[in-house]
Design a binder for these strands. Structure first.
Lengths: 140, 140
DNA sequence: CTCCGTGCAAAGCATTTGCATCCAT
DNA sequence: ATGGATGCAAATGCTTTGCACGGAG
């Protein structure tokens, strides 16, 4: 599954040239539960030898998102990116810690069709975001 | 119900001074299905006699949202505002036309608790946004 | 050799802030 | 009279663009 691919393979599979910078950006994002903004990525990469130009970070994130390797989120008015594997694209977003959890698709599928029948509205099955408080942050 | 209040009363009820500008902003938003950005509000108000300063629009929207009279949305990286009555705060957002429809709460309530049991995640029952395609925009 | 990616600097926008003025209570 | 609201202008911060350089196919 794509989640276990090394960044390099994911890039090739997406039809992108695997450059040092794209590798660095992708590698930084893989395995994170919280989305990162371009600024954050740039900051973390700065400590790396050489670092990656801010412009390049913006372009890489945009490109990778277009290629379907990243999901974009709105973090307090700024665009943030999170790596997505082959995993379901249903997210539970914690308003406390910003973590994004994957939601088992079967839990939502039936409800979505039910909703469709009730309202005539067709939800995007491939991208559902639900905000709330995750178990770890839940008030004790 | 607050939806039928004239803007003036809504402002007073929220503990805000009903100024000409706030009235204008609120009146513009009442009854709209699509959220508007500060820029859009300012533009539409510009044609009005006198118009409203851009800064004031930003401040009014922020204040009104804080007071609970408006809901905020993320429209393509920009903050957008929509009037909310006493209506349920569950929205179905059309990705095609940006319209925001209200969703009957009973359709989601039971599912939310079910989700909670399955995942330990506590969704915000008071604010749920679901993106998709509305009936009007549905591919024929 | 030819492209595409990179990086710097500059430009572009949305949003916020400082400060003097004005209005309504 | 007094505190909040307004508006202009300037500042801030994120993001994009122009353009020349460099490296990979």
């Amino acid at each position: 599954m794509s989640t276990r691919m090394v960044p390099d393979e994911q890039l090739r599979a997406a039809g992108l040239l695997p450059t040092t910078q794209r590798r660095a950006v992708l590698a930084l994002l893989v395995g994170r539960s919280r989305p990162l903004t371009a600024q954050a990525v740039h900051a973390e990469l700065a400590s790396t030898v050489g670092g990656v130009g801010l412009t390049t970070v913006y372009r890489a994130l945009h490109t990778l998102a277009d290629a379907g390797l990243l999901h974009t989120f709105d973090l307090d008015g700024q665009r943030a990116y999170r790596h997505c594997g082959a995993a379901p694209h249903q997210h539970l977003i914690c308003d406390r810690c910003d973590a994004v959890l994957e939601c088992p698709p079967d839990v939502v599928a039936s409800w979505l069709s039910e909703l469709h029948h009730h309202t005539g509205f067709t939800p995007h099955a491939d991208r559902l975001d639900l905000r709330g408080i995750c178990a770890a942050c839940a008030p004790t």
